[in-house]
Design a protein around this nucleic acid. Sequence first.
DNA 1: CATGAATGAGTGTTCATTCAT
DNA 2: AATGAATGAACACTCATTCAT
Lengths: 188, 188, 188, 188
Amino acid sequence: MPRPRSDDKRNAILAAATRIIVTQGLGAPTVLIAKEAAVASGSLFTYFETKSELFNQLFLELKTEMALTAMKGFPEGAELREQLLHVWKNWMNWALSFPEKRRAMAQLGVSGEITPATRATVSKAMAPITELMQRARETGPMRTASMAFVLTLINSVAEATMDFIAQDPANAKKHSKGGFEALWRMVV
Amino acid sequence: MPRPRSDDKRNAILAAATRIIVTQGLGAPTVLIAKEAAVASGSLFTYFETKSELFNQLFLELKTEMALTAMKGFPEGAELREQLLHVWKNWMNWALSFPEKRRAMAQLGVSGEITPATRATVSKAMAPITELMQRARETGPMRTASMAFVLTLINSVAEATMDFIAQDPANAKKHSKGGFEALWRMVV
Amino acid sequence: MPRPRSDDKRNAILAAATRIIVTQGLGAPTVLIAKEAAVASGSLFTYFETKSELFNQLFLELKTEMALTAMKGFPEGAELREQLLHVWKNWMNWALSFPEKRRAMAQLGVSGEITPATRATVSKAMAPITELMQRARETGPMRTASMAFVLTLINSVAEATMDFIAQDPANAKKHSKGGFEALWRMVV
Amino acid sequence: MPRPRSDDKRNAILAAATRIIVTQGLGAPTVLIAKEAAVASGSLFTYFETKSELFNQLFLELKTEMALTAMKGFPEGAELREQLLHVWKNWMNWALSFPEKRRAMAQLGVSGEITPATRATVSKAMAPITELMQRARETGPMRTASMAFVLTLINSVAEATMDFIAQDPANAKKHSKGGFEALWRMVV
DNA sequence: CATGAATGAGTGTTCATTCAT
DNA sequence: AATGAATGAACACTCATTCAT
């Protein structure tokens, strides 16, 4: 994978794709994405081999950003609940700050466009969070359930909360807290 | 007295659409759906005005079926937990019995093809279940959260559990129970 | 050509076609014509083998009616100018009374749907009028031109006048007279 | 610096459309027109947004060309009759030289595809000719008729003559002269 | 490398005609 | 004969991708 010349242009395309996906869905023509990025339609394909490739990269980028954001300022020595809450707050804050990214990510996640390879890479980026969740459930009521199932459940609660925040940002704080308590009761 | 419009044919198209959506996604050509239903390509459009209309009807049909199934044999006088468990079991059982319906429903739900009108009708079909959930949270820890938020959360746990059952049917019982307990802890 | 059972239904279809052609053009679906005629879509084809056949019959019917109307009350013994004027007035009157027929006829005439056979039959129906025109030009300035050419010219003036009357019926009388005088000067 | 949009290609499409319209009518598939123009089917739509737009542009192009041709070498100082005859000859010559253009133009003119906007633009292109006609009738027998009516009449005679020339080119000269004299008698 | 015109397979939908009832 | 559902070929237009400039 040779890096294409301009990272700026690459990022412009990714950002444009995010916006377009939110307003037009994944079926939006690549020309539209290119136009939104102020780039020639053909140029899109020098940065991403195919439309599908663009979507996979975007998904990876978004998930990675989300994971990094979640772990920012992680309180290493603190108690579990504080750690979990810290991550949760970062997470919800990101969803509140970048609702478009959140929505595009959700759409991409269920689209069937995302390859197993991409999902695997995403998993790696999520590793620190996964590990935290693992510690969280270790002694709780779900200690005998399969970890994959627990992660699915946790993820679904997080996504639901983020979706709700995205569509009712006025009560973001309240929903964030409610979601966290629900998660805590469920797992710990 | 021409050939009357046949419910059989309508159902064949809906069933075919379900199968095709699972294997090919919502972008699948209508000809394919028609062929799978053993019907001429044009006939699809005597039963559904547009592809989008077909998808909306299918979504409605699936959701309604799911809701009806969930309430089957509802123990009117029983305790809340038993009632909730009854619905939950029916629900998960349906997901286990008709994994394709479940998957198609999930895809349609996030597709942007479903109109607000359809969603409103679905809400009505879900009313008895909604009411039960309402009673469940009434005295629990989420009693002050907005009902819409609680429903979103409950729904997400249910969907996550169904998804998990669909992809690991061998442990369906275990996952079903795990999901229910998580839900119970979360809400009641 | 076996006569179909009901002449009423046949006429209803022809009348409906006239109306539909005016509002929707010749590309209008046969179902529409059938509906306008209050007849089942399939029935149209028991009265006319094909859509094209329907158009040919309609054209013939309209032209024949127009020709018959034009000759109604023809003053056998009168002078040429009076005879010509009589025909002309009948003609223009018909166009004024049935603008839809006139418009449909015009559309059909240029459509490429009308077969030479139909045109030949029309010619026969127009024979008395043609003959009159022939007498008219006999001693006039166009006596050496080919009759076909003269007929084309006359026809075009008549059609132009009818079109103009159809779109400005308020001045029908004036236009009719103007057209006739123009014709007279041209031919006689 | 990509391939620039080529006027050649645009013209090839217009010319192809002219030919196809004559042989297949306005219902001819766009693929056929594209093939005739030696262009990919999709390319047609980079030059003309819709089939209808193509037809409108073609009509405009043909009418404009016809009007320009008619005024070529106009004898400014000459007498009215000579001026009129000059225009008439140019006109008929054009019809004789490009019978396909003439036929396509006629079909388009009555098709219902041509928008009022296009007709208005055409009117402008015809202005010099219209003005000439205006001067012609000024003192003649039609001086009290509405100009629009006179124009319609003149036009119909011209079109009829062109049609006749197109289908009997051997006697083009004779028909041209005959048509002109008829016009002259009618108007001047 | 940037540009946007060129390409042509692919799609939803229409509609004349047929045919089961 | 009447009805209108069934059929499938046909068609305008789109769009991911390529490539001449």
